[in-house]
Every structure is written in C-alpha cells, then in structure tokens.
Design a protein around this nucleic acid. Structure first.
Lengths: 137, 137
DNA sequence: CTGAATCCACCAAGATACTG
DNA sequence: CAGTATCTTGGTGGATTCAG
C-alpha cells in the first residue's frame, strides 16, 4: 500500500505566522540543493554510500556526507555500518523519512501541474520588461 | 470552501530522479529564507508593501522587494499599483499562488506532527556523539 | 510610501588531497 | 569503500543611502 490521503483545512495551516515559521524551518533543512535528491535516492529502500553518489549526479563527497549527517541528526535517515573489510555502510529512510515523502509528493504534483503556467508567466514578465525598457529610452 | 483534498500515489511521484529534480527546482525558488513567510502574509488577501514588511519580522526592504519580484515573475503573486500620491501598491496571490498554499499546508502538517520526533532524534544524536567523544579520549 | 543602488560580510558549497 | 581535512570562492542576504 503505497497510497496516502491527506486532508488539509487550509485556513488552519498556512494562514498564521507561527505556522509559516514552522514551514520555513523545515524548508531551511530540506530546501537546499541536495537534500531532496538524496531523500529521493533513498525512497526505494536501503542504499550504500557510493550508490547514492552515483544516483545523485554531481554531488561531491563532502556534500553527500554533510547532507546524510544532517538527515541522520533529524531522524529522517538511519545509518547502518557493517564493520567488514572493506567497510560497508547502508542508509535508509526512517518512518519519519517515509512520511516526509508524502508532502514532497504534494509539492511534486503542484510543480508538475503548474510548470507550464510558470514558464508562461516568466515569458510574459520578460515581455513586459522589454516594453518598459523601450519606453525608458 | 477553503478545504482541499489531495490524493497522491507516492510510488509515481518522488521515486524517480526526474521528479526529484523538479521538486528541487521548486525548492530552489520557495525554499529560501523569506518566500514562504511572504506567501503566508499574502494568503489572506491583498496586502500593501509596508504591511507585508511589518508582518514578516526582520525582513529588509531589499529582500522583500527581491522576493516579491521573483514571485511576480513566476506568476505566484500579482502586483497592482495605484498611481496616487503617495504611491500605493498592493500584492496578492494569483490562483497559482493559492494552489501553492496547499502543498505548503501538507508540509506544515508533517512538521507539526513530527516536530517532537525530530527534537527527540537530535537529542539522541547529540547523546551518541558525547559517548563517542568519551571513547576517543 | 515604495522602491533602486551600492557596498560588504559571511557562509554554503566546490575542488583537492589525504586516511582508516 | 567511506569518509575527513583544508583551502578557496561565488552568491545570498544585511546595512545604508538615494530617488520618484
């Protein structure tokens, strides 16, 4: 069962300043360049360090390590080390982490649905700017 | 009717790399320090420039202007100028912007539900670190 | 009142080299 | 294989000043 339902009464969530502050805190953690990509790489099950680095194109060792450490701190990711030679470390999402994938899915749905509208809005904005530049001559 | 239902089939959204890239793009726009707070300030209806600045504590003029301009570019915010003296400018969410509040609400619900778990995870992580520091002496 | 313009400090993040 | 250590830099955001 990989299906989930959310019912949100909007008027009680994002419409107060405290709630927005809370969202901002979450975004400060997961809103960086790499975190969601790493979470995505882990969303199917346990993965090894190098496997993640191959999945998330362009991430450096430093950034991968830092990102994983932060996620582990917040209890979103669980780290398991096997003291073999060579060493082997597996990362996986905790329950908390899996639950995070749900709101991320909502964000994804929004992005998917409205991306054309955004592209369009940018085009119109650029057009409007060009007109203003003309008038200013 | 300020109630909304989202049905997300998780397995089809965040589990592929392309989807994660799309989420990352959105987060690159709204995941900064101020954007969600500004969106929150606008979520009740049209607001004037100075009103926003009073609502969002600590934001500088520069950041408010930049944030609003980016949101306007993406079609999330609509700017209306009244050429009076002194000038008066109102900002309001577009339909696109109001729709964005929905996934933000999902994120808020997640944060609200699991914040205790996160605090707890950090405490345990810190505890574990202290033990490791002891063993290293 | 609603911005624009400029300067500056800081830190996240990249590159590189090294290690258990 | 799975990291750490160090150095460097680009860009974000803050403070301040000017303007329509």
């Amino acid at each position: 069962m990989s299906e989930t339902n959310i019912s949100v009464r909007v008027s009680e969530t994002a419409h107060n300043y405290q709630g927005c502050l809370l969202i901002a805190q979450v975004l400060a953690r997961i809103g960086d360049k790499w975190t969601v990509l790493v979470v995505g790489a882990l969303s199917r099950g346990p993965v090894r360090y190098n496997q993640i680095q191959r999945t998330v194109e362009g991430i450096s060792q430093r950034m991968l390590t830092l990102t994983l450490k932060r996620l582990e701190q917040d209890g979103i990711v669980k780290r398991t080390m096997f003291p073999t030679i060579p060493p082997r470390v597996e990362y996986e999402l905790t329950d908390l982490g899996h639950e995070l994938v749900v709101p991320l899915g909502a964000l994804h749905a929004w992005a998917l649905k409205y991306q054309p509208a955004i592209v369009d809005a940018r085009a119109r904005y650029a057009e409007k700017e060009r007109e203003n530049a003309k008038l200013a001559e």
